[in-house]
């Protein structure tokens, strides 16, 4: 199944959740904001959000400091 993450094409297995994708990308789900098809996912919904063919995601992984 093909999706686009931060402008790059990615091939992932059917049924992959947003939480699983965050893991595949090597990121922490506590430090990211995820936009799926132009809408930011709500906190706590990553595991229950199953990705579909053609989905477009922007994943913002925060780093500390301020």
């Amino acid at each position: 199944m093909n999706i686009t993450v931060n402008g790059e094409k990615m091939d992932i297995p059917e049924g992959t959740s947003a939480a699983e994708l965050i893991g595949v990308l090597g990121l922490s789900d506590k430090r990211v904001a995820v936009e799926l098809n132009r809408v930011i996912l709500q906190a706590g919904s990553f595991a229950g959000t199953v990705l579909g063919e053609g989905d477009t995601l922007e994943v913002l992984s925060f780093v500390g400091g301020g």
Binding site: R31, I40, Q42, L60
Partner: peptide, 13 residues
Amino acid sequence: AEMKAVLTNAMAG
């Protein structure tokens, strides 16, 4: 970083 994510996700929701 955790609080930056908390704020973004809370406000978006």
